[in-house]
Design a binder for these strands. Structure first.
Lengths: 191, 191
DNA sequence: CCCCTTTTAGAGAGCGATCTCTAATAATCG
DNA sequence: CGATTATTAGAGATCGCTCTCTAAAAGGGG
């Protein structure tokens, strides 16, 4: 083949995550990623056709890592248990991956979604559809009287927002957070 | 005195809020604000010493408008009623002021907090202290067994995150949101 | 009506970011 | 060991943004 890579895709994306953690989405520039990874900017352009493709890749890799774990938790049996587990999972994952969790507090818009390549836009839509379908299924399994808006609040919004405050303020997520979130979900969903 | 202003402070800040709504914090540049307000960049620099002071002003004006209404709601009597009202207030205010609400989904960090003038940093700290004290007082009034973390979750995080999802997705905040949020707060706080 | 102050108006220097292009480099395969 | 190929390396053009500076304009007070 040829020369082996020194700064591979994942290393560059790791640098990009660090930058987003320190300076927000606008800190993720091609020049900054290259500097941070110790690579010349040409190496970045060798992997990503342009700056937007890089931003899309950072967002998508992070989101999909989160979604994989979340969907797994929300797909368990029985439904009540799965809902509470999913809510806990959001908190635990964020404690384990604080940089990625802070990044996900932004939206794809902040990472330039409207200027992404089509393939990346499709990938995002596909992942979101998967999560939405899982949660719609969960709502149905929980009973006909549980609407999607309520499930979203209990399982996504509440844990997400608790995490968000601690990430913004730089305080560690308390040990009790999982229990608090589980209690809220149970109360909201009548479990 | 002298010539009356054509582009006053508040008009420029309104333009800045619009830009943040459309393009995020990084869309709020001196050049863009001037363009959007139909003013030359010199007029912006006549009001604000530099770009960071402008960002600070946008953030602080928006935050303080929100906090004024929120603190008023959270200070009512009795405590249980005040807590539920405060949670509802977050949702209502966001529906009435969607641009400002989306802006507040970011943090001061995203608006360059670390490079703000000292006076602005102090103003931010003062406002935050006021809210924190109000909520600590509310927690105490609710009873010795209600800790601050729980009050924050019920009254701030939950409504904020429900709103955040709709703002991100561009969907309107449902009519039922206030009730859902009030129900959650009541359950969490044992009201 | 003229002077004084505030404000508008915009040109232009300096800077950092994106992206292109060319040359050098290093491993693998025959 | 030489040919091939993936990759690094970085110079340089272009662009938009920040900020400064000078000149002009437009009311209000005496």
């Amino acid at each position: 083949m040829g020369r082996p890579p020194r700064h591979d895709r994942d290393r560059l994306l790791d640098a990009a995550v660090d930058l987003a953690f320190e300076a927000g989405p606008s800190g993720v520039t091609v020049a900054a990623v290259a500097r941070s990874a110790g690579a010349p900017s040409g190496s970045v352009y060798h992997r990503f056709p342009n700056a937007m493709a890089l931003l899309a890749a950072v967002w998508l890799r992070t989101l999909e890592r989160f979604q994989d774990d979340f969907v797994a938790a929300a797909s368990g049996e029985p439904a009540g248990r799965a809902a509470v587990d999913a809510a806990r999972q959001v908190v635990s994952w964020s404690r384990t991956n604080p940089r990625e969790a802070l990044l996900l507090q932004y939206g794809p818009r902040d990472f330039g979604q409207s200027e992404w390549p089509d393939a990346d836009r499709d990938r995002l839509a596909h992942g979101n559809r998967r999560v939405r379908d899982t949660l719609a299924g969960l709502a149905a399994r929980l009973g006909p009287r549980t609407d999607l808006e309520r499930v979203l609040l209990a399982v996504v919004d509440v844990p997400r927002s608790l995490v968000a405050r601690h990430l913004r303020e730089g305080t560690p997520i308390p040990e009790s957070a999982e229990d608090l979130v589980a209690e809220t979900a149970a109360a909201l969903l009548g479990i």
